[in-house]
Nucleic acid binder design. Sequence first.
DNA 1: GTCTATAGTGCGATAGAC
DNA 2: GTCTATCGCACTATAGAC
Lengths: 195, 195
Amino acid sequence: MVRWKPGTAERLQKAALELFATRGYEQTTAAEIAQAVGLTERTFFRHFSDKREVLFQGQELLVQAFLDGIDAAPPEASPLEVVAAALGSAASFFPDERRPHSRTRQSVIDRNPALQEREQHKLTTLATTVADALRARGVDELAAKLAAESGATVFGIAFTRWLREERSLADIAADVLAELLTLAETAAQALRPTR
Amino acid sequence: MVRWKPGTAERLQKAALELFATRGYEQTTAAEIAQAVGLTERTFFRHFSDKREVLFQGQELLVQAFLDGIDAAPPEASPLEVVAAALGSAASFFPDERRPHSRTRQSVIDRNPALQEREQHKLTTLATTVADALRARGVDELAAKLAAESGATVFGIAFTRWLREERSLADIAADVLAELLTLAETAAQALRPTR
DNA sequence: GTCTATAGTGCGATAGAC
DNA sequence: GTCTATCGCACTATAGAC
């Protein structure tokens, strides 16, 4: 007989998402989430530093997918090529089967500004981590930051589209990145013409 | 005889920044800020929807500077050219005299994750507003989002550098944008070679 | 302007796992 | 014995309702 089942955090996350989706985020207290899995409020806060975090913990795996993609890129790849590789790797983290769950989660986030803030913060953290990994490859600071932030932007836009469309995230992300490159080329021609 | 002095919000903001800079953000309560200018906690929350907002209210003017820059761009300008114009306009919002104040404010933000979240949220809001303005000019949705987010990225990076260097924000932003275009051109050559 | 619910912290106690 | 998950209680500040 085990007194404490494993996977407490996961059960709390599942219960939280269900409650948030039905009752709403603000209308759900941390104590209610804890109760739903037979725990106390105090235990909830042992697992999650704050109430919002229950929806975001677990994203370290996504970050790791980005880093794996970076490691897999050939050494001579340019910064944005490395980012393209990272995007491909990250996309595999969201197979199409995961779409329904992601949709539910996102609908909760979209309805609450506090959760949107946290989501953006996580995206920025991701960009910072990617930038560090690029710098470790020898990319200079400015290029690393720009490439990493651009990667985060592309990922964010592609992810939003993936929730609505039925195509794979990898395909969508590749298209979004391609569009960014096209925009830049067009602007580069205009801003510094014929050299 | 006026019953309430004007500029209450401004005085609260000034007092808040001073207290945050000396005592720290978390160690300063809303009640203390209010007291410092002879008001009650309740009044503080009538001016600012939450404690963090006291550091961010006033950014609507920056957003407006971006929009003015967009309006001033020639009709045939490509999306990122329009964004370049917006950046130039926004830069004039931070003349060099403002650097000391901005440095103090940023050092407070840098020391507190909750404030960083709000800052990023404001940048994203800015990007959304810029994207809407681009769409109103006829730019398609994806291009508008990408150009707007890239503009926000460039602004964010340039602003950080402006706090450290002594050059004008306009100069720095132009350089950062140029670097982004270079990165994109390099990647475009590699990812879709010779067509 | 007052009153209240909730978020979140600090500390001590308990009890099983090892 | 140590380590770790849990609970319980007291407490403050935020923020919204009245």
